[in-house]
Write a protein that binds this DNA or RNA. Structure first.
Lengths: 135, 135
DNA sequence: CTGAATCCTTCGGGATACTG
DNA sequence: CAGTATCCCGAAGGATTCAG
């Protein structure tokens, strides 16, 4: 019907737009990078292959659930490779694939930008918070 | 005490680690970029200044609340500049600062990587889902 | 037109315990 | 050792309404 509320129109627009956004490679990548643990795992693995429990210790504070979940999604995306060695206690190693290394390079670019400009951001925040934010 | 459960040790480690992570510029930036609307707003603004309501229309599906919230945080970080023109109906324009433009360049790098490698990711997913994921 | 305030639902992710 | 299964809570964010 022609009489839609603003919210209804927004909702419909959102339905279409969501599809567009989910299909957008940039957004997909951003979503992936946004995951708190992803960048940590990739960084940890940038130095070489590691075992599951080693990663758990290296990335302090991660729960088994999130570590597994992160590793699984990275494996699915072809970022990390999982190698099972069926020894007496099972041994599982994770390492970056070529694609994973490529990603770690991008992470480096992000890191560079962050370190170069974070100071400006902090200054901007202090200016903003100080100008009228002092309650 | 020396007798801590694994969870307790994890919790303590997490407390320290969280502080470290929050203080890490890279992670701060990643957090910011991860925000669903941030990259959209920055991209929209990359083409020039826009009014509040124009942004709302351009970025279909965004609620006033999220648009305002996104804009506020970006303004606070010195990414966008807010200009109020006190005409009869108030007019507010938003535009990227120099820092904002610099960020949009990084966004472009991310976009490049995504578009270059998304196909590999999709192939990896199909391989992963197809190998044993077909239930 | 440009928001601020409020309510309310969803869901990511942590704690915990159990299995091959 | 390397996970899996379950419960549960807090926070993010959408809808709605009101205001300058």
């Amino acid at each position: 019907m022609a009489t839609m509320t603003a919210a209804q129109r927004r909702e419909q627009a959102r339905a279409e737009y969501d599809a567009f956004i989910r299909g957008c490679p940039t957004n997909q990548l951003l979503d992936r990078l946004s995951d708190k643990w992803v960048s940590l795992v990739v960084s940890a693995l940038a130095g070489g292959a590691m075992r599951y429990s080693d990663l758990g210790r290296r990335i302090a504070g991660v729960s088994p659930k999130m570590l597994t979940q992160t590793l699984r999604s990275l494996e699915r995306d072809g970022i990390v490779a999982r190698t099972v060695t069926p020894s007496v206690p099972v041994r599982v190693d994770y390492e970056l694939t070529q694609l994973g290394h490529s990603l770690s390079l991008l992470l480096l670019a992000v890191k560079d930008w962050a370190e170069t400009h974070i100071e400006e951001v902090h200054e901007a925040r202090e200016r903003y918070d100080g100008s009228d934010g002092d309650q």
